[in-house]
Amino acid sequence: MKSLDDKKYWSPYLAGALSGLVLILSVWVTGKFYGTSTTFVRAAGMVEKIFDAARVARMDYFIKEVPMIDWQWMFVIGIFIGSLIAAKTSGTFTWQAVPGMWQKRFGSSVGKRAVVAFIGGVIGMFGARLADGCPSGHGLSGSVQLAVSGFVSLICFFIGGALVARIMYKGGTR
């Protein structure tokens, strides 16, 4: 039996397949594949430029990934807007500081969640840049192109993630 809540969402198969179609259209029309993590490099460079533009201009990685707004930068902003539209139009927008599963295990402290989420972000992005992509760039776009780098990275994402999730929730309930 479907609960009321289910009607506001779509099957992940349908939503996923439609995302695949959007990707095909994007590749056809603009030649662009999904990706998000490079944008964090460009954005970090933009912030650093405010403080020391000369230094940023000399740094190898910012010469490789120039701090500027490009297709992917707008794509990432679009994800935020698209999610906001979908949540508002379906009445599923909810302010939430601490996710349910987290709260059951680690309590409702916003500070504790903030610290771990921030550290997770630092580690995750460092890894994504070292791997040259994240679940969108490697996982989706890489696999779609049957790229060896995509499959290898995606498998490693899940191995690393599953190990840490196991440690964090050892003995815990769903």
Binding site: I123, C134, I155, I159
Partner: peptide, 18 residues
């Protein structure tokens, strides 16, 4: 190596970049 490190961060944060 990057993939495994990403995975560690992903599980701590619970979201990927996108």
């Amino acid at each position: 190596i990057g993939g495994l490190i990403f995975g560690i961060g992903w599980a701590l944060l619970g979201y990927c970049p996108g």
